[in-house]
Amino acid sequence: MSARMQLTDVSIRRGDRVLLSQLSCELHAGEITVVLGPNGAGKSSLLLAIARLIEASGSITLAGRPLANFSRHELTGQISWQGELPPTEFGLTVQQRLELAGTDAKDEIESVATGMDINHLLSRPLGQLSSGERQRTELAALMLRDTPLWLLDEPTAHLDLKHQIQCIEMLKSQRDKGRTIITVLHDLQQAMAIADHLILIDGRGGAEHGEAAGLFDPARMTALFSASLRQQGALLVPDYGEKT
């Protein structure tokens, strides 16, 4: 399992607006890269471009080979994407959703479902689940996709505290197994807990990237989010002011 990814001058537009302009960076196997930035900055679009689900200019290579040269089938074997929650109108059950991730093996599905605390929900339609349960189903579907590169768009969204911790632990353990992970997060504490590498997107086309340790500073984060942050020990936390 090895996925060295190189982005060279990657630019993404949405209509007339430039979301990302000429981002270049290299991501190594067994690293977690966290993408941070304000709403609408283009974080999800970056993941979609890497998964080749939207158009982007510039060059993206995976293990030295341009993504554009991969067939859709080949790409499916290399990249897994966890994004928006799927629609629920047509009554798919949790079990069926997991089978669509690529395996019919009941043991494997049950094992992953148990890990995500959704084993008791397998026969339930997705429409009868809470958003958090649906998110855990999507994470379980991702775990069934044994690809070298994982792209996750806000994996801890909708999750309660216990499952947020579980999700972060799962990402760390997958990194330790050599998987390359690129994830969008909004929670700085979670980002600081797992990021080896950061990509900061400012929403005006600009982006910074580098080692996480070098980029987590209050001034940079305050400027990125246009929000007040303060240092609390080793952590950067939002400054909500005093309790009134």
Partner: peptide
Amino acid sequence: LDKLLLGERHAEALGVN
């Protein structure tokens, strides 16, 4: 068709043209 029930992006990500 089953994969398309998950939405176009999920279907595409799962290898459907």
